[in-house]
Computed example of a mutant assay.
Amino acid sequence: MTILKSNALPGEGMGFLSGPRASEVLADLREGFFRFLALAVMSLFVYRGVSQLIIDPARLNVLLLAISETLTFIWLLLARRPIVRDWNPFTVIISVTATFGAGLISLEQGAAIIPLAIAAPVQFLSLWMSIWGKISLGRSFAILPTNRGVVTDGAYRFVRHPIYAGYLMGHIMFLL
């Protein structure tokens, strides 16, 4: 009688999708699907923004918001895949909603609470704050939380969350 050290039957576990390799493929498929979903949502948002700019080319605030969201998507595509990521469904839903929530904003022109001459420069500065924060992170930028270490250089020397601060300030200026 032969006693096997693993639970696998003889000959099992030798295939392409066995053991650690199967989990890597699953992680790559999940990551690829997430990035494809990001592409689809961002493409729809940019299409809506460009449509509004064609109707009214003077809407600088729509252009700045579209640039901000497009850069977020580009950074997401260029980001390196983390070794460990939090795929908890609650975390994924919150992160995706917060990230792509700007795509749900109506881009139709409404009544301006703040004149565009004031809002657009502040929105432009907030865009640069977000860009500086992303440059400071390098390829460690991502939508879902993961442990990439603490960054204390660049924009993170002055503000703990410069990307979020830039988004918040820019989106508020757009809405106002």
Rank of each mutant, 00 (worst) to 15 (best):
L39Q: 11
E108H: 13
P162T: 02
R160V: 12
A120G: 10
T2L: 14
M173W: 03
M42A: 04
S51N: 08
V46Q: 05
S130C: 13
E108M: 09
A38P: 01
S140Q: 12
F90I: 09
L9Q: 06
I135V: 13
P57T: 02
V50C: 06
G103T: 03
L37C: 06
W75A: 08
T2A: 15
G11A: 06
V92S: 09
L17Y: 04
A117K: 12
A58Y: 10
R81V: 13
L4K: 15
L53R: 03
P162H: 02
R148V: 09
S130H: 00
D28F: 12
A8C: 05
S51V: 02
R21G: 03
L168G: 14
L65I: 00
E31Q: 14
T72W: 07
W87Y: 04
V46K: 08
G103Q: 00
N7R: 14
G133R: 00
F73G: 01
F90M: 07
P145M: 12
L26F: 11
G101W: 00
A119Q: 04
L76C: 14
L104V: 14
L44K: 13
L125A: 11
A111S: 08
A120T: 03
G166F: 11
W132D: 06
T99F: 12
D153C: 12
I83D: 15
L127G: 02
L107M: 10
H171V: 10
F124E: 10
H171W: 13
W75D: 15
G13R: 10
T97N: 01
G149H: 12
L39K: 01
G133S: 12
M173R: 03
W87D: 13
W87L: 05
D28T: 10
F124I: 00
A117C: 05
